[in-house]
Simulated scan of single mutants.
Amino acid sequence: MGKSSKNSSRRSHLPYLHPISSLGNQTKIILCKNGCNFVGVKTMDWRQYIHSDPKILLGKPTVKGTRLSVEFLLGLFAAGWTEQQVLENYPTLTKEALRAVFAFTAECMREESLYTLPLLSEAG
């Protein structure tokens, strides 16, 4: 990062992001609520892979064509499963569908605000 260029003002503060011009037409500029710019984030359309149907798992978001919920798949990763393990154990899934799970979750989290509330015993 020691080199300075005229594009340096367009770079994000996150090292894995790239200037907008290098990512083509699928690039979005994402502004987080606290004002930091996520310039050059390449996103996917998760709607091709994730849907919600009240008749399937009470409407939980699932991967299309399966009964695998986003929540369940994230739980596997949280439990230490690798992408390879998930794909081997659920052969109907694709790498793109797993990527859509994370894209969907990221979008949901961008739209949420989380607050820390004191316990009743601490409020007094």
Rank of each mutant, 00 (worst) to 15 (best):
I56H: 03
L68S: 08
S22R: 13
R47A: 02
T82F: 05
E71A: 04
H18M: 10
L93P: 09
E111W: 03
S113C: 08
A79Y: 00
V86Q: 09
L74V: 06
L57A: 09
A97Y: 02
E88I: 11
N37H: 09
S5D: 14
H18E: 10
L68Q: 09
K3P: 08
K95H: 12
N34C: 13
F77Q: 01
Q84C: 12
F77R: 05
G65V: 10
W81G: 02
S12W: 03
K55T: 15
T66D: 07
Q48F: 10
A97N: 07
E111K: 15
S21W: 06
N25M: 07
P91M: 11
H18L: 12
L57I: 08
A97T: 08
K95Q: 15
M44D: 03
T82M: 04
Y16S: 02
Y90I: 12
G59T: 03
S5A: 13
E71S: 07
L58T: 11
K42S: 03
G65F: 08
G24S: 01
G24L: 04
C36Y: 06
G24E: 04
T105P: 01
L93K: 10
P91Y: 11
H18V: 09
I30C: 00
A78E: 09
V70W: 01
E96T: 13
S4M: 14
L58A: 14
R67D: 15
A79D: 12
F72V: 02
A97R: 06
S12K: 03
G124E: 05
S9G: 11
H18F: 08
A123K: 12
S5T: 15
A97Q: 14
Y49I: 04
H51I: 11
G59R: 04
E112T: 08
S8E: 14
P15K: 05
G24M: 03
A106P: 00
G80Q: 01
L73P: 04
T43P: 00
E122W: 06
P91I: 10
R11Y: 06
Y90T: 11
Q26C: 05
K60Q: 13
G124M: 10
R10T: 12
E107F: 02
T92G: 08
Q85S: 13
Y90K: 08
S121E: 12
L93N: 10
Q26L: 06
S22G: 07
L17P: 00
N89C: 14
D53C: 11
Y16F: 14
G2C: 12
I20H: 05
L120P: 11
G2S: 14
R67H: 14
L14E: 03
L31W: 05
W81C: 13
M1E: 14
Y115F: 08
E83D: 10
L74N: 04
A100F: 05
R11K: 14
Y90W: 13
P61F: 01
F77A: 00
N34A: 04
L120E: 15
K33M: 01
L57R: 10
T62E: 03
L120W: 13
R110C: 04
R47Y: 02
M1A: 14
T62W: 02
S22I: 07
Y90P: 06
P91E: 12
L23G: 12
